[in-house]
Write a protein that binds this DNA or RNA. Structure first.
Lengths: 230, 230
DNA sequence: CGGCATCCATTTTGATACTG
DNA sequence: CAGTATCAAAATGGATGCCG
């Protein structure tokens, strides 16, 4: 299957040659919450044909964005995970995601799919890793009907769909509130005082959470042209 | 033509519902260098079908990303230009562009199209607007066979394909060097001392140029979660 | 000629069935 | 579970036609 390319010597066109096809960036989003199996991906991406999913996974692997890994027995399974280039691509998606929140915000449609991890993987990107030294907490996020888990550990932030047995605290809200906060139209502190976001669990963990998350997401985020250490 | 949507309540999916189709982001890129006519766009985007171009323009207009404007006689012509939302979308594309430069860099192919403005519109985004107070210069960029113009004026940066009669200075280099600088693998100062980038014209204008451009583009740009004033 | 609309061959995608 | 095979439907590319 020869890929359709733009044939332009331009960084944007070169990017879009490999991530501009349907489903590709959503596949990257799925893998932001850790390695997943073929059937997990097929389940999360409702509407993708099985053969197209297989073709996209092969393309992304050829392009060095994901890699296959065999889990050892007894869990014997093939999983896909992001490479370093894939993780950097995921980071590059954040401004597009925030643009979407600001300009495409609306109420969810009745038949629309929703997963807590879709929002949580991008919330996780906004946590200041330098503020995490010595901290280690696991949070359960209950967003509407769906839940996902966020773990901060030393200078690392990870998201997993869960469910996990052990966690230190729970944050609860609804999908629309998440969108309004992402759009920069609602501050986290304001959402907390009005009860639109509820917190429950270990007080130290919760205080940490409110400290590492931005209180208000900017409506005009800027790309910092200083190198990020590490 | 009913649009194909992902049907997921997720900011990324909501964005991709409207900018994920073929040609859409390249159209936005074209309009980053100022308003253009239908035929300008058709000429720049080699391979797009005329009917598809018309359809995309209508979609983008419906989605509030571009708007049509009638130029007054005698230049009587219809041009398309970015709205505020469109300009913000263009800004959100920068990390994806830099990701492409870092991970998809290669030599240009013989049959590949190239335009100076494709690079210049993103270079323009990296100029620190706060450092421009009281400055007013126009630069000609000669990139390979192609040229485009950059104008800084007060706190404003604009790019036009030109040609312009009057400009204060010229910067000259080749497409591959632009890509290496964009990828963060080559500092501007280094490219200047090795003669890979040449400068010519008014010394004040040139000194200003080297001051407002970043010397080295980070390999790990970060999204600043402070609001950008203005 | 600029600014599209129409038509049709080719690709890509969606949905389901099937296999080791 | 991890895909492949198949086929219909939709999107795209390219040519051509129309109308001021």
């Amino acid at each position: 299957m020869a890929r359709r390319v733009y044939n332009q010597f331009c960084s944007l066109a070169l990017s879009l040659d490999i991530v501009g096809e349907r489903w590709t960036l959503l596949l990257v989003r799925e893998l932001m919450a850790g390695p997943k199996r073929y059937t997990d991906l097929a389940g999360a991406l409702d509407g993708i044909g099985s053969s197209l999913l297989a073709a996209r996974l092969r393309q992304l692997e050829d392009d060095g964005i994901i890699r296959q890994r065999q889990l050892p027995p007894p869990t014997a399974a093939t999983v896909y995970e992001l490479t370093t280039a894939g993780t950097e691509l995921a980071e590059a998606m954040l401004p597009l995601v925030l643009w979407g929140a600001r300009h495409r915000a609306r109420a969810p449609r009745p038949d629309e799919a929703y997963r807590a991890e879709w929002a949580l993987v991008f919330i996780a990107q906004m946590i200041d890793r330098d503020a995490l030294t010595g901290l280690e907490y696991t949070y359960r996020f209950q967003l509407g009907e769906s839940e996902a888990y966020l773990r901060i550990s030393h200078n690392d932030v990870t998201v997993t769909p869960g469910p996990l047995d052990r966690f230190d605290a729970t944050a609860g809200t609804d999908p629309v509130t998440v969108l309004e906060i992402s759009a920069g139209r609602l501050a986290l502190s304001e959402a907390l005082t009005t009860g639109r976001v509820t917190l429950d669990g270990d007080p130290d963990a919760l205080l940490t959470l409110t400290r590492v998350l931005p209180d208000r997401i900017p409506e005009h985020p800027r790309i910092a042209l200083d190198n990020v250490p590490g």
